[in-house]
Structure formats: structure tokens, C-alpha cells
Amino acid sequence: MTLDPTYLEYPMRRRGMDHDYYPYSAMPTRKPVSWPGGKSLLVWPVISLEYFPMAPADKPFRAPGHMQTAYPDYRHYTAREYGTRVGIYRLLDAFEAVGARVSIACNSAIAQRYPALVADILEGGHEIIAHATDMNATISSGMPEGEEETIIAETLDVLEQNIGKRPRGWLSIARSQSFDTPRLLAEAGVEYMCDWVNDELPYRFKTTAGEIVNIPLNHELSDRQIINVQQQSVDSYALQIEDAANWLLGESGDHGGRMLPLHLTPYIMGLPYRMDGFDALVRRLADNPAIAFATGEEILDSWKAQQ
């Protein structure tokens, strides 16, 4: 056996990264960040608000959480809808009870279908960030020319029409991008994206259409990963989040402000048997004077002003 000789050629073997999206940066070498109010740790909740059409498109792939049985998959269609009817209100209540404002990563279809929910979110002072049109609008390489631009434009336009403001942030479904996504987002005027998980602070991303900031939304600390994939309890989840918060608070003493993203899914966390544990976690975080809750745009503005 032999491999094609090009398999032992390394055209991108060079100083720095093997792409031009961002330069290498070691976290300990950066200028320490100071958060508003002298807080050591900003907890950034991001709640994904998703509409799953009962007919999956599978182009280019089926989103996590999508339909699983033969048509009609009433059980998954309605169980996801439970999140947008009930679970989201439990999560909003948990955060509003401590005066926290959060980011809601919202399919534009949600804004069209459920204006009462969007009004309640806006009434709470929360931020809405763009999260594709619906859960069939996945993105990856190999999509037909123009389709990705259409998804991005339609999402932003529909959200803007329904919430009276153009979203500043973007989260791709499953954090899945093509090679073009950062450029297309920058072209569409999106200021920050949440897809890249390679850091714990915001950083600048270069595209031929200008810069966009990536605010890393840790996927390992999501309720989907810990509860759904790893099958752990909400008590274990809460302990893990507090272990993370305590570690980051410790680091902030020497290294400056830290952030802790909480990626939440209403149909996962917002179940009755999980909510008491989650409510208690939110209260404990809120009671710590070194911690504040923040939205993505608050983190973006604070971080940018210090660069």
C-alpha cells in the first residue's frame, strides 16, 4: 500500500494558524479585561429558541433535536414546541427573578409565528440574536451558491421587521459554518457570531468583507451536552457550572475579567423536574457579588471599548 505523495505534503505548515481567519493568541499574554461595575465574571446565558418543521429538509444536514421517527413525528414536534410554549417561560422567570437580562438565539420563524412570546422577551429587556430561519436552515460547505446568503438575509430581515431592531449577533444551527459564513455575516452587518468555541473571551475574526467578533459560546457547558448527550442530572449540571464559575473567579484575580457562557435549550432545561435545581443555581450565581449576568451585546460593547 502507498498513499498519494501529496498526503505527506503540508502546504499550510507555517508559523501561526493553518488559515487566515484569526492570528494565534495565547490567553495569558493578553491585556486583562475589566468588566462594568468591576465584576470578575460575566455569566452570559444564551437560550436557543427553535422552530422545528415536522418535515425535515436534511439540506445540508438534520439539526440536533430534529424529528426522529417516520412522518408524522408528533412526539418530537410537540416536545420541541413544549420548549417554546412552556419551557422558555420558566427560563425567563428564573432569570427575571434575579434581574438578569439574557441573549435569546431566535429562529426568525419564531418571531413570525409567536409574536406574543417575542413581545414578552423584549419586555424583559433581553437581547435577540439571529439563529437562522428555522431548524431546517442548516449551513455547511457544499450548499448551492446563494442559499447561505438567502438564509442569513431572510433571518435578519424577518427578525428586524418583527422586533424593530436588526440583531447584532448570530448563532448558526449546531454552530455549523461553511468556509464563507464569517464573510457573509460580516457583509450582512452582523457584529458578532457565537459559533467558534476555541476561546473564552471575544476575539476578532478577519474576513474579506471586514472584521467580525467571535464571542465563544462554550458547547461543553451547554445543557444539551451535559444533560442530553452525557446524560447527567441537573444537579450534576449545576455543580459543574459552579465549579467552572469558581475556577474562573480564581483566575480573574491575576488575569482579569472572565466570562461563563450558559447555552440553554427550553425543551431540555425547562422541564418541571429540572427547574428547581436550575432556579437555585441562578440564584446562587446572582447572589455572588463578583458575578453579573450579561447579554452578548453588553459583552461585545464592553470588550470592544477596551481594545
Binding site: Y24, S141, V197
Partner: peptide, 22 residues
Amino acid sequence: KPHPDIVGYGHRDHANRVSHWR
């Protein structure tokens, strides 16, 4: 996943930017 698998790649890039040092 089709390239770029940015979650797989980004997760591992976290090592060199952040978690190695920790």
C-alpha cells in the same frame, strides 16, 4: 462533518489558546 468542522477544530484550538496554559 464537511470541512470546516468548526466545532471539532475550534474545540481543539482551545487547547493552544487557553487550556494548555491552565
